[in-house]
């Protein structure tokens, strides 16, 4: 998918510039044609400029990323994430009624969400994979997503965020006068999108076309057999 998008941006751009070179314009004197190389030369110049720009920007990002990941390492080692996880437990029971409160899936989901809230992208992914693996253990039809899975996936893709560390880094690398001014708006926007994710997953699971097929017996009996 990303391959197609990248290719389209690149090729459509060059083709459009190629056509602009014909210099066809609708003036008061009717359609005129003034061929010029300028649009293609602009592209060459901006491509080299931007390639250089990409690297200077990444270098500007090093310091802020180091600072943030350093602080987050302390949070990780001190067990702060587990503390956050404990606080979120009552909400989790409401969000995932199909999952028994003491099932390991609950703990994994909380840990994964807590990690992504703090902007720990690298730590969040393995934790998230663990969480969905635990949910799969409760799944009766192994190739079909459960309600809990859909709710969890909708929540993780709506990115519950407290500190958008990378964004703050990029803004600071681009010499913003106030790189952190977006933190408040991000928290509000992410809160709205996560709320929508939860509501939509709870509503859609009731639609006939998304109903789970009926299965006899419970997971436990299947596992015992």
């Amino acid at each position: 998918m990303i391959n197609i998008v990248w290719l389209i941006l690149l090729s459509v751009g060059i083709i459009v510039a190629g056509f602009s070179c014909l210099g066809i314009e609708n003036t008061s004197a009717g359609w005129i044609m003034e061929p010029t190389w300028a649009p293609l030369m602009d592209i060459t110049n901006s491509v080299f400029g931007e390639a250089k720009h990409a690297v200077t920007l990444a270098f500007g990002l090093i310091g802020i990323m180091a600072l943030w990941l350093g602080i987050m390492k302390i949070a990780e080692k001190s067990g702060l994430i587990q503390v956050i996880a404990k606080g979120l437990k009552p909400i989790m029971v409401w969000l995932f009624p199909e999952v028994p409160p003491d099932h390991p899936a609950m703990g994994s989901i909380i840990m994964a969400i807590a990690a992504s809230m703090l902007g720990l992208g690298n730590a969040a992914t393995p934790l998230g994979l663990k969480a969905i693996g635990e949910l799969q253990k409760l799944n009766k039809i192994k190739d079909t997503a459960t309600n809990a899975m859909c709710t969890y996936m909708a929540m993780s893709t709506s990115s519950v965020t407290i500190i958008p560390a990378t964004i703050v880094g990029i803004r600071s690398a681009a010499n913003s006068t106030n790189p952190t001014e977006v933190i408040g708006p991000v928290i509000v926007a992410t809160g709205i999108s996560t709320t929508v994710a939860i509501i939509m997953s709870k509503l859609l699971q009731k639609l006939p076309r998304y109903q789970l097929p009926e299965v006899d017996g419970t997971v436990d009996t299947i596992e015992e057999n």
Partner: peptide, 18 residues
């Protein structure tokens, strides 16, 4: 899991809301 049911529509609606 191949049948993802309402996961994608719910997630994309949330993106749009975001």
């Amino acid at each position: 899991v191949r049948k993802t049911r309402h996961a994608l529509p719910a997630a994309l609606t949330a993106d749009l809301a975001g």
